[in-house]
Each structure stands twice: as structure tokens, then as C-alpha cells.
């Protein structure tokens, strides 16, 4: 296997995943204040009203599809009696709907971001890089899904096994070398997106407020519990006495 292939399907994923993990830990430790989706709904809500849910629900469906396609081995679905043809038809149809929703939503969001001046003014350079990368990955992904109708390539016998092999620390880069170009490109840019992830507003994904469903409505905190929610680091202890009564 060439140096290039070794790099791109073996070294590069590990570098990017390391950045992804360490980047999030670092950002959470040092930039909790910057950890937000930075909503621009106050500036513009007419387009956002349909585009944003469309994009988000779309991409959540896409994510679930990836969990299915990449995470669950074909042997498992075979075992429960889902034939490859059934699976393929389902994946392509549901995937295509979700993908089109995501793209339509993304187009709406990008339109308002470009043409609503207040929203454009609130857009950072990193936002632009992130949007470009996200758009590229989503488009390439949709091409893969739609072209699934025509091609005979079964990604569950190639890309998926390669993907899982990374996490087993038993990588099989040779599986990606033989994958179609559009799958290769989708993979390359998706991995790059993961490397960018911790440095963009995409971090808000990891603080999705699921706990809201289970917590009491009104929260109380003691004044003493909260002299900054970030734990003080060594050497920065504040002048303090033995814990106070109140």
C-alpha cells in the first residue's frame, strides 16, 4: 500500500480523532463561556423557523443512519433476518429523505446567513470554514446515498468495517483503498470536520439538554457552591477558611 494510502486511511483518522477528543476536553475545561450555539434567531426568524428544524431533524436522522450503517455489522442484521436488499432499499430511501431535508434546511440557513446583514455580521471566520466543510460532507454523503441505487458497492462490507476497525485499534486501511472515490472523499472531509469540530460552534451538540426531561422545574444552588462553576486549579485556590456554616 502506498504511503499516501497509509497516511490517509490510517494515520490521518487517528490524528483527527485525537484532536476531536482532546479538543473537546480542552475547550470544555478552558472555554465553557464560549460553549454555545450562538443562536441568531433574534436577528432573523422567518427563514430560520422552517430551515433550522428541517436541518437539525434531518441531520439527526442522518446520524442515526450512520449509527446503523457504520456501527452495526452486516452479520447482525443478517442474523435478525433483514436481507441485504431490504436493508439497502430502506437505507437509500430513508437516507435520501433525511439527506434532502438536511440539505434543504442547510440551504435555507446559509441563505439567511449570507443575505440577512445582521446575521452575516454575526458570522465568524470559523463559522464560514465550518459551513463549507459541513456542506461539502453532507453533499458528498447524499451523493453516496443516491448513487447507491445505481452502483453495486456494498459499503457495509468495506467502509463500515474499516470505520469500526479504527476503534478496535486494528485498522484495515486497505478496505478504503478499494472504495469508490465519492466514499473516499466523504470520509476524508468528514474526518477533517471532526478535527475542526471542537473549535467551532458545533460543540453545542455535546451539551444537548436531554437531562431537562428528568430534572425538577425550579433549581436551587447555595451561594457557596457557586463561586464560579469551574473547579479551581492548583495554585489558584482562593483565600478561604474552613467551610462556613452558611
Amino acid at each position: 500500500m502506498s504511503v499516501w494510502n497509509t497516511f490517509i486511511w490510517l494515520i490521518y483518522p487517528y490524528i483527527c480523532l485525537t484532536i476531536f477528543v482532546l479538543g473537546h476536553i480542552g475547550r470544555y475545561r478552558y472555554d465553557k463561556f464560549g460553549w454555545t450555539s450562538r443562536s441568531s434567531q433574534m436577528y432573523e426568524s422567518r427563514i430560520l423557523r422552517w430551515a433550522n428544524p428541517m436541518f437539525h431533524f434531518g441531520i439527526l436522522a442522518v446520524f442515526m443512519g450512520h449509527v446503523m450503517g457504520l456501527g452495526i455489522p452486516q452479520t447482525w442484521t443478517d442474523a435478525v433476518g433483514i436481507s441485504e436488499t431490504t436493508y439497502h432499499i430502506m437505507a437509500v430511501s430513508v437516507g435520501a429523505i433525511a439527506g434532502f431535508c438536511t440539505i434543504a434546511g442547510l440551504i435555507g440557513l446559509l441563505y439567511r446567513r449570507r443575505f440577512t446583514k445582521a446575521v452575516l455580521g454575526a458570522t465568524t471566520k470559523m463559522d464560514k470554514v465550518m459551513y463549507a466543510m459541513l456542506g461539502l460532507v453532507v453533499v458528498l454523503g447524499l451523493i453516496n446515498t443516491v448513487s447507491g441505487v445505481a452502483t453495486t458497492y456494498n459499503y457495509r462490507e468495506g467502509v463500515s468495517i474499516w470505520f469500526r476497525s479504527i476503534f478496535y485499534f486494528n485498522p484495515q486501511p486497505e478496505l478504503m483503498v478499494v472504495a469508490p472515490l465519492s466514499f473516499q472523499l466523504h470520509g476524508i472531509f468528514a474526518i477533517l470536520l471532526f478535527a475542526l469540530w471542537p473549535f467551532t460552534r458545533l460543540v453545542h451538540v455535546f451539551t444537548a439538554p436531554i437531562g431537562y426531561i428528568f430534572r425538577p422545574y425550579v433549581l436551587y444552588r447555595s451561594r457557596d457552591d457557586h463561586e464560579g462553576s469551574r473547579a479551581r486549579r492548583r495554585g489558584w485556590d482562593k483565600v478561604d477558611t474552613i467551610p462556613r456554616r452558611r
Partner: peptide
């Protein structure tokens, strides 16, 4: 406080002052 999905807003036990934890607010 009840609307905050993250639980960043709280009422202080000692004096009832309602505050937003700026480190926990996610801007929902």
C-alpha cells in the same frame, strides 16, 4: 428557571436571588 433546558439558571438558597450560570448557559 423552569424553562432552562440546561439547568443553568438557579435560585440562590440563601437569599432567593435568581442568577444565570454563564459557564453553563448554552444559549437555548
Amino acid at each position: 428557571v423552569a424553562s432552562c433546558p440546561t439547568g443553568a439558571i438557579y435560585k440562590r438558597e440563601e437569599d432567593g436571588i435568581v442568577l444565570v450560570d454563564q459557564d453553563r448557559c448554552r444559549g437555548w
